[in-house]
């Protein structure tokens, strides 16, 4: 249990998807002009990451292992294709379920869901999970943690950007240029978490 909590905290703060690995930057920059939309996208990403990472783990475990489907045949070369199609299919599925189950939530999340398929943090989480050899529970914790970290970063970033609108920034630096420098500063702040090993505090 401590192990799973450890992975969750690490994924959310220390190995933050945006601020340490820059994954999902495109939508992070595009959808952070107001806090409200940032919260919407943030929740959608947590949702999708929490579902796709464990599902991709199952696919990897039951289909990609050496000789899992046909003895003697290794299907690793289909890994990328299967991962991305699972993500695309699950995003579509989540969109349909949310639309049926809660139209109010759909109105908030709806427009963001299609964007998420090409959000690198989703595929990135699945690939990290493979390269770090997590098990099923760890993968789930990692997926949720990565999503929470991503949401946290975009919401904080949007809040700062709202304040910046009234600041006197040189014209050529306004908007995008400032956004990058700001993310860099946030990344430096998050580096403060570097080297913290949550496992040590749980003993």
């Amino acid at each position: 249990m401590g192990d799973i909590l450890n992975i969750f905290i690490k994924a959310a703060f220390i190995d933050n998807m945006i601020l340490s690995y820059f994954l999902g930057m495109c939508s992070y920059l595009a959808v952070s002009k107001s806090v409200k939309t940032a919260i919407g996208l943030g929740i959608a990403v947590v949702f999708v990451l929490a579902i796709t990472t464990p599902v991709n783990w199952l696919i990897d475990f039951f289909l990609m292992k050496d000789g899992a489907v046909i003895p003697g045949v290794n299907l690793v070369f289909l890994r990328l294709i299967l991962f991305i199609s699972t993500i695309a299919a699950l995003v579509q599925f989540v969109e349909m379920v949310v639309e049926k189950a809660s139209p109010a939530l759909y109105n908030q999340l709806g427009i963001f869901l299609p964007l998420i398929t090409v959000n690198c943090s989703i595929l990135g989480a699945s690939l990290f999970m493979v390269s770090r050899e997590y098990n099923f529970g760890q993968s789930t914790a990692f997926g949720i943690g990565a999503g929470v970290g991503w949401a946290l970063a975009i919401i904080a970033f949007a809040a700062i950007r709202e304040k910046l609108r009234t600041a006197a920034i040189p014209a050529p630096l306004r908007g995008l240029g400032m956004a990058f420098i700001l993310t860099g500063l946030m990344g430096m702040a998050f580096m403060g978490f570097m080297g913290i090993n949550p496992a040590e505090y749980m003993k």
């Binding site: 820059f22 240029g177 400032m178 990058f180 990344g187």
Partner: peptide, 28 residues
């Protein structure tokens, strides 16, 4: 070589490019 340096750098590159090429300036 730290990751955050690349963000500062890309911010500065955008700044230089937009200062040179006024039509790209973000008005919002």
């Amino acid at each position: 070589v730290l990751p955050c340096a690349s963000l500062f750098l890309i911010g500065v590159i955008i700044w230089v490019q937009r200062a040179r090429n006024q039509k790209l300036v973000d008005v919002s």
